[in-house]
Simulated assay, not measured.
Amino acid sequence: MAASSKPTTTIAKPFHVAQFTARDYSAFGIAGALCCTITHGAMTPIDVVKTRIQVDPNLARHSLLSGGRKIVAAEGPRGLLTGFGPTAVGYFVQGGAKFAGYEFWKKKFIEVAGDQESAVKYRTAIYLGASSVAEFFADILLTPLEATRIRLVSQRGYATGLVTGFTRLVREGGVRDLYAGFLPIICKQIPYAIGQFTVNEFCHELVYRNMSEEKKRSLSGVSTFSINLGSGVIAGFAAAILSQPADTLLSQINKGHGPTGSMAYRLVTLAKQAGFRGLFAGLGPRMVMTAGLVSGQFLLYGAIKDALGAPPGLEIHKEA
């Protein structure tokens, strides 16, 4: 008798996801904190001009250059460094939480996918989910310091710096004023993070997908730097465009503009008053600023991680 044939089953290869240690996450956090505080601190003058264009009617139609000249003429060069303290501290804590959080949540969502094929198939959802969740928790740390920064920038003479500004905000408004901008800030920062991380991931994927394995292995340091820089610039443009409307509303809310009522009602009212054009006021300067921020952050993040001996982040790019 012939032996009966049995259907063959393909045994899936074990799905192995690299596990990060507490030391690895500490390195991710330190690298993220330093890259964000350095880049945001360096961009303070541009951010000052951008915020003034958003909230000051006298500067609403000015360009980045002409707005900066007007501020210097009225307040001196120090006027362009208004809010440097809360910017540096705020983005130090936010950057550490965001970059380490992105690595953590990306790994968790890859594990939820269950296998390599599913992880690649749903990589967009993984990028979106990881960046959104990481940014949400990072913004809990950022919001009070961002509120202080905007008060210092938008209200001349409000305080002399971070400590006095934060103290005055707590004394006059308490926790309510510190977190008055939490809803608009997550409406701004989550789209920002989505543009930053997701677009950067896909830019790298697009470049490497069109390279042979031999070419990838023989890439020079200059070529790798150029790829990272270009991907960061494109991701920065995307982040700026996606987050611009909420960024404008955040500046208005923290200056006290708009009607009384719930935050959602105030945001809707301010958005209607501003209109499409008003919501995108200052987009040009912000795109310049954000392209520099995001590309600089990714370059510094990689360099600092390497210096700390941290492992590379997980990749789920589609190869072909």
Rank of each mutant, 00 (worst) to 15 (best):
G296D: 13
V288K: 06
I253R: 04
S243N: 06
F298E: 05
L270M: 13
L242A: 13
E214Q: 15
G302S: 08
N210E: 07
I190Y: 11
N228E: 04
S220R: 02
K305M: 14
F276T: 04
F197E: 01
G302L: 08
M289V: 04
G309I: 02
K215V: 02
I253F: 11
L249A: 00
A291V: 04
L299A: 10
I304C: 07
A246L: 12
Q297I: 07
R209F: 13
N200M: 10
A235C: 00
E201P: 00
Q297P: 09
A238H: 07
T248H: 05
K305G: 12
L293C: 12
L267Q: 03
N210C: 01
K305I: 08
E205V: 01
G195Q: 02
P245D: 05
P245Y: 09
E201F: 11
A238G: 01
Y192D: 07
L206R: 12
G230N: 08
R277C: 04
R266A: 03
R286C: 05
V199G: 01
A303R: 06
K272A: 15
T290V: 15
M211E: 12
F298V: 08
R209G: 09
G282E: 07
S223T: 15
N210H: 14
S295R: 06
E214S: 15
A238M: 03
F237L: 14
L242M: 03
S220Q: 04
A239M: 11
I304S: 06
N228I: 05
A291I: 08
A239F: 00
P245K: 05
L270Q: 03
L300P: 00
H257M: 11
Q196N: 08
V199Y: 12
F276H: 08
L249W: 09
S262Y: 13
V288N: 04
Y265I: 05
G278H: 08
L249D: 00
V222D: 09
G275I: 12
G296P: 07
S226R: 10
G256W: 15
L249Q: 01
L229Q: 02
F237Q: 01
A291C: 14
